Deep mutational scan, measured.
Amino acid sequence: EPLWIRPDAPSRCTWQLGRPASESPHHHTAPAKSPKILPDILKKIGDTPMVRINKIGKKFGLKCELLAKCEFFNAGGSVKDRISLRMIEDAERDGTLKPGDTIIEPTSGNTGIGLALAAAVRGYRCIIVMPEKMSSEKVDVLRALGAEIVRTPTNARFDSPESHVGVAWRLKNEIPNSHILDQYRNASNPLAHYDTTADEILQQCDGKLDMLVASVGTGGTITGIARKLKEKCPGCRIIGVDPEGSILAEPEELNQTEQTTYEVEGIGYDFIPTVLDRTVVDKWFKSNDEEAFTFARMLIAQEGLLCGGSAGSTVAVAVKAAQELQEGQRCVVILPDSVRNYMTKFLSDRWMLQKGFLKEEDLTEKKPWWWHLRVQELGLSAPLTVLPTITCGHTIEILREKGFDQAPVVDEAGVILGMVTLGNMLSSLLAGKVQPSDQVGKVIYKQFKQIRLTDTLGRLSHILEMDHFALVVHEQIQYHSTGKSSQRQMVFGVVTAIDLLNFVAAQERDQK
C-alpha cells in the first residue's frame, strides 16, 4: 500500500453525458421521505430548503428570480454533511469501515464536522487534520463531537509532509485500522450531490432553472449537481466560483495573481482535486475576500440567511453572472454553511477592521482624538531585521541585547519573508524542534498583521487588541530589464502597544 495517494490523481470516472444510468458502476440512493420521529440526527441530513432572495437581486438590477439552496440546514450545519454520511455509508457497505475503526480526514473543517457527527452516532474514533487558518468555532464544535484535532501550517503546499493532507496520511500509516475516506478522491463525494442535492433542486424548481452558481473546494458539490442538471435540464448554465489565490478556475489566465492566501474558508485549493470535473462548468468567476464577507453580511442583514463567507462569494458572483438572465428565468445559488463557524471572524466588526474589510468610518461609535491620525505620526525608528541564514542562537542574543521581542526576517534585497519572535524561538528550542545552530528560517511564521503608514491609529489599535505587534510595510514598484514591473513589500518598522501608548501619553502631556 502506498504511503500516500495524491489528492489530485487523474480521475478514473467514466461518467458521460447521455450515458444510461443503468451502466453506472456505483451504488445510487434515492431521496427517502422522513418519518415524523427521526431514529437519529443523521436522518436530518439532506432535504434542505430552497429560499427566495428578495432584496439583493433587485438591489443589483437582476431581472431573474434568485433562489438560495440553504445547505446550513443540514444536521452539522453545512453541505459537507451529505458527503460525510455518504462516504461512511459506502465504506461500511463495501466492508472497508468496521466497528471500532478510526476515521482520519484532512479538511478545512466542515467535512470534519460532518464526519465527527456521523462518527459520534456510529461509534468510530475520528481524527481531523486541518490548517491553522480555520476558525476556532470549527475546532470547538469538533472537540465537542469527540474528534481529535491536529493543526497544520496554512501556507504548507498540499504535497508537503507538513500539509493537512501529508499529516493525515502519516497518521494513517501509524494508526492500525485507520482510514482516510479522502473527500478529494472519493466518488461518494460527487455521488452524494448527484443522487440527492441535484434531485432536490430539480424537484423544488419543478425542473425549471436557467443558471446554477456554486463555490468550489473539493469540487464534489458542483460536479455532482452539474452532471445531473446537464442530464435533466441541459439549458442550465453552470457557474463556478473560485477565490483569488486558488488555481481551480479555467482558463488558467484567471488564476494569475501574486496573491497566495485568502481568508474565506472551505473553497479554493492549490491543486485540482480528483473529484472535480471542470468540463461540466460553463464559466468560472474569481471572487475576493472583501466581496465575500460584504455579501455574507448582506445576506444575514437583508435576507435573514445566517450563512458563512463562501455563501457571500457565491452570491457576489451570482449578481454578476445572472445579469444575462431575463424576467421569468431563474438562478439558484448554493449557500454551503452557517455563520456559526465564523462568529469571531467576519461577523465581528473588530475582525473586519483588522483585516481591512471594514473602515473605521463605517462604525458610528465615538472615537478618541488620536483615532484618525496616521501611523506615520508615530515617528517610528528604523527596524531591526535579520536574514533567514542567521542562526536561532545568534538571533536570540541580538533580540535580548537590543531589547526586542520580535524581528522581521528579510532577504538580501529587503523583501519581507516573515517574522521571528523570542517566545516562538525559545519554545521551539525547548520542544526540540530546532537547535541553536539551525537557521532562523526554520522558525519563520507568517501569521502576523501588516499595516501601512497611511493607515489610521484606530486601525492599529484594533490590531493591537488581539496581537502583540504589527509590521509596518510599504510597497515598492521595481522595474526589470524586460520592461515588466513587480510590486514588493518592504519593512518600514515594527509597532507595539507600548509605542502607541507612549505616543498618546506624550501628545497629551505636551497639550497640557
Rank of each mutant, 00 (worst) to 15 (best):
E412C: 12
G240N: 01
S427Q: 03
L335Y: 04
F357G: 01
L399C: 09
I444F: 04
D411K: 15
D510W: 14
A311G: 09
T314G: 12
D337W: 04
T385L: 10
G432C: 06
Q487V: 11
L325N: 01
T279C: 12
L453R: 12
L422W: 06
E265G: 01
E244W: 01
S486A: 06
K512Y: 01
I247F: 07
T385A: 13
A505S: 11
L363S: 15
T389A: 01
V415I: 14
F285A: 14
L353Y: 13
V280C: 15
N424M: 11
D270L: 04
I272W: 05
M466Q: 12
E252W: 11
C331D: 03
I238C: 08
Q302Y: 08
G493Y: 13
V494A: 08
G423D: 01
S485E: 13
L471D: 01
M298F: 04
I477R: 10
K446Y: 14
A321S: 05
A497L: 01
S437T: 04
I247L: 12
L384I: 04
V409D: 01
Q259M: 14
S427H: 09
L363E: 01
S381V: 08
V386W: 05
Y479A: 11
E401P: 14
K359V: 09
F469Y: 13
F357R: 01
T344F: 01
G441I: 10
Q476R: 05
K355I: 05
F404V: 07
C392S: 07
V443G: 14
I444C: 12
L347F: 06
F404W: 10
R488D: 06
V472K: 01
H468C: 01
T274W: 01
L426F: 12
Q487I: 11
I396E: 08
A249N: 04
K366D: 11
T314N: 06
I390E: 07
V434F: 11
A292V: 08
E397W: 09
D455A: 13
M352R: 06
D467M: 08
K286W: 01
Q256W: 11
Q329N: 07
S428M: 05
W284F: 05
F295I: 07
G403L: 01
P251A: 08
Q326Y: 15
L373P: 10
L335F: 07
F469T: 06
M466A: 09
G240Y: 01
D467L: 07
E324T: 11
L399I: 09
V473M: 12
K355S: 08
L378S: 07
A497D: 15
A296L: 04
L325S: 01
R340A: 01
E412F: 09
A321R: 07
P251D: 03
I390V: 09
K283F: 10
Q259V: 15
K402G: 13
E258W: 10
N255R: 06
T279W: 14
V410F: 09
D510T: 11
M298V: 15
E290C: 15
I498R: 01
L430D: 08
I463K: 14
E263P: 01
H462R: 08
A318L: 01
V472I: 01
S246L: 01
E397C: 07
E291G: 04
R278I: 01
H474F: 09
G268C: 01
A413I: 09
D270K: 06
G483M: 13
I463P: 15
I463C: 11
L373I: 10
A497G: 09
Y445V: 11
L453H: 03
D455H: 11
L276V: 08
W369A: 15
A505L: 01
L353E: 13
I238A: 01
K512S: 13
S338F: 06
T496A: 12
L471I: 15
P273T: 13
Y479H: 01
